[in-house]
């Protein structure tokens, strides 16, 4: 049994959200730079230049990359040998969100009573927390600010088995096509195939945490990623939807076994500002 102090969790969460909102990960920057080399549309190239300049200013001046600093999504990989002391885990995380969003001048976007009064909770809590219990005695915390624009364009389908692989491709391409300029392309397309409805969407969201363009280790799945990316980048939507070759930087697919009657496909879109930051305690 290894002890981790709740206060350490709070300070880590606070730091991770601030860093995530100011500093674009290297893999995202590299993918944007590669896209800039490939893009043929002059307006598309201008957009990519603006995005790269913005990332530079944000990191240097600690101004959020985007004013939408997101829902505070937190992925936890909690070693079963960890004992949290000095407070409870989820309160510690929410306290970290509260502190980080306030101290870091991040926008508080969460509203309660979503279908009626829509009252801002003023500190961006509650965090959206997903916990996996894993072997070991460490705690991995991944902070993922998730903007509303791309999240709104996400979708789920329960395909018929007869639609198969072809149906999966057509559905994902249709979601990206209909989203058009709204999710701030070039996007990262997170796809979850299999499981149940909620499992499929969790897989899609988790897929967004992978390094941009890193293929799924399973060759069959990696081939599907390549094929969908090819189709998506023929849509012509381009950077910010102004027209161009690069509509998506990557398609990441995660797969899980499913019921013999089902073929769930979830698509969770992420804008070019693919922000996440992690720490291992």
């Amino acid at each position: 049994m290894r002890e981790i102090d709740a206060r350490e969790i709070t300070s880590t969460v606070s730091r991770l959200f601030q860093e995530a909102c100011y500093i674009l990960p290297d893999d995202v920057l590299n993918a944007l730079e590669r896209a800039r080399q490939i893009e043929e549309s002059p307006i598309g190239c201008e957009v990519l230049d603006i995005i790269l300049r913005n990332a530079d200013i944000s990191a240097k001046e600690q101004i959020p990359l985007c004013q939408d600093t997101g829902d505070a999504v937190v992925f936890l990989e909690l070693g079963q040998g960890v004992h949290i002391v000095g407070g409870d885990l989820y309160s510690a995380i929410n306290e970290g969100v509260r502190h980080g969003y306030t101290q870091g001048y991040l926008r508080k976007s969460m509203v309660s009573r979503p279908f009626s009064a829509r009252v801002n909770t003023k500190d961006n809590t509650p965090a959206i927390i997903h916990t996996d219990i894993v072997p070991g005695d460490r705690l991995r915390i991944i902070a993922k600010p998730k903007g509303g624009g791309a999240e709104n364009m996400s979708s789920l389908a329960m395909l018929s088995l007869a639609q198969g692989r072809r149906g999966v491709i057509d559905f994902v391409v249709k979601v990206v096509d209909e989203a058009g300029s709204n999710p701030c392309p070039p996007i990262i397309v997170g796809v979850g195939i299999g499981g149940t409805v909620e499992k499929a969407m969790m897989l899609a969201k988790r897929a967004l945490l992978r390094k941009v363009g890193e293929p799924n280790p399973d060759t069959e799945t990696a081939e599907l990623e390549r094929e969908i990316l090819g189709r998506v980048n023929k849509l012509g939507i381009g950077p910010m939807g102004y027209g161009g070759r690069i509509t998506a930087l990557a398609v990441h697919i995660e797969v899980f076994p499913t019921h013999m009657a089902s073929l769930p496909v979830a698509v969770n879109l992420e804008c070019h500002s693919c922000r996440h930051r992690e720490a291992l305690l």
């Binding site: 004013q67 939408d68 600093t69 001048y105 991040l106 926008r107 509303g148």
Partner: peptide, 22 residues
């Protein structure tokens, strides 16, 4: 169509990009 992030002391405004118009 915009909702800025808070300004730091000495800044006019925080991050100030557009939101989805639709």
């Amino acid at each position: 169509y915009m909702g800025p992030s808070p300004a730091r002391r000495g800044q006019v405004i925080g991050s100030a990009g557009p939101t989805t118009s639709g």
